[in-house]
Every structure is written in structure tokens, then in C-alpha cells.
Amino acid sequence: MAEYQLRRTLLYVPGNMPSMLQNIPLFQCDGVIIDLEDAVPLSEKDAARILVKRYLESYKERNKEILVRINGLDTKWALDDLKAILPGIPDGIRLPKADTPEIVERLDTLLTEYEEELGLELGFFKILPSIETAQAVINATAIARASPRLIGLAFGAEDYTATMEINRTKGGEELFNARMNVLWAAKAAGIQAIDSIFSDVNDMEALRVETELIKRLGFTGKCLVNPRQTDVIHEVFAPKQDEIDYALQVMEAIKRAREMGTGVISLKGKMVDMPVVIRSARVLRTARAHGMVDIIINEEDIHGAE
């Protein structure tokens, strides 16, 4: 498993709106995606790029993950976007229209060049590719393994339904196969799967239903278009009290097991081994993010000391 980072909520912030950018430190989401692509009209591409550059330079004490959605690599703006924003040290790039592994590889190469230039550790900049076309869904397995920089696959249902020439419904039946393909590809590659935005910001009930669905399927987070959606999504992803209680027992049991020199132990008649420990660690870290427990889970607690 890759390093554990909560990404329940990734909020899109338009790159051309100073008032929204200024509030990034205040939003309660796990991360933001500053958008230079679809949210920015063609006439404001340059202005937004400069604004985001300045913002990143001034935002020193960060309290959440910062991704920037650049314009697609096939557009005339993409290289200028990277040149402007990477010196501001975002955590990563949300890559739109990542239809093939080659597109991801190309970004990987560009990022490597910037890391050398900026004196950053190789692999510093992460990539979150958008799986948002029929082609990308088919290529998802290869895309998920295209670069070690990948933190996950992000499903983009709005563009996907457009390329499928269908309408998106609140029930989401039309997205089922695509979502599963993205999930399988991500899970097989050991990275996260992030679900699409839900665009009706006034229908919190439908947002809740959709979030419950995608959580059951295996997604670890969701993109959102309005900070008001954060609470609902966090509530859905919040662990239940009995899950937390069980996870605490698991961590205690595995600690005892290791003291006895074994990696497997029985808890209330059920076997506790590595997958159970990893799941429990995830529950407790999520619970901590919700303020439900104070316990801090280290890598050593999960994997044991060498």
C-alpha cells in the first residue's frame, strides 16, 4: 500500500477567482484542485495562470493537499501552465483527458525536468489522471501503472457521459461499468480511486445517496464543486463507532501478537492478519480525521518494526 493520505474530498477551486483562492486554507476538505482548465474561460487563461502562480507562492503554511488541474497536454496552454505553477510547489497535477498511458508518461517526463531544475526530490510532484472518456476507461489498467507518481485515478463522469453521448442521471446506472473499471484498475495498481463531482449543489440528499454508493463500491473519495458538499461526504466516509471499536481491538491484538513473535492472531474467534490490520489502520486514521479518536497510527504499527 502506498503512503496513506486522506482524500475523501477534493474541492475544485476556479483559478480565476481570487476570493475563492484566498479561502483555500479555510475549507474543510482534504484537498483542493485549483482549476486552470474548464472553470476558466478562454479569455482569462493567462490571467488565471498568473493569479494561481502568485497564490501558490504566497500560500506557505499549507494545511491540505494542493493539486492543480492544468489544461490538457494537447492544448497550447499546458506547457505555460506547468512553467508558471510548478515553482509554486503544488503537491501534484490533476491531468485532464488522460486517455492513454503515453499522455501520463509525457507529463511524468516534464515533471522530472522541473524537479531537476527546482532541486526537488525526483517523484515529488504527484499525478492524478482524469479518466473521463470511453477511451480512458478502456485504458484504465495501463494508465494506472503508467507512472510511480500516480496517487490515484479520478473518474470524470461529466465528460465521460458526454463522450458516450448519454445523459448523466442521479441514479448513476449508466456509470456503473465505467466506475468498476476505474476501481479495478486503481485497486490492482495499489492506488486510490476518486469519484466524479456531483453537480447539483442544492440536492444534498442525492449527493448522500451517490456518495454511499461509491463508498460501497470502493472509492476512497470524491471530487466536489462546492465547499458546502464537504460535510455530507465526510459524514458518509466517517467510520461507524463499532468499526472504530473493532479496529482498536485489532491494533491491540496485532501488537500483542508481535510481542509473542507472530504476525497472525485470533480475535474473538476470527483471524487477524495483515489485510485486517491495514483495513483497521485506515478506519482509525479516518476516525482521527473526523475527531472521533486521538490515536495516531504509524507505519510501524501497521507493519511492525524491522
Partner: peptide, 8 residues
């Protein structure tokens, strides 16, 4: 209010 800052 529906303003996210106001709601916060």
C-alpha cells in the same frame, strides 16, 4: 446563507 464561509 449559502455562502460556504458564512456556513463555516
Amino acid at each position: 446563507t449559502t455562502d460556504p464561509i458564512g456556513l463555516q
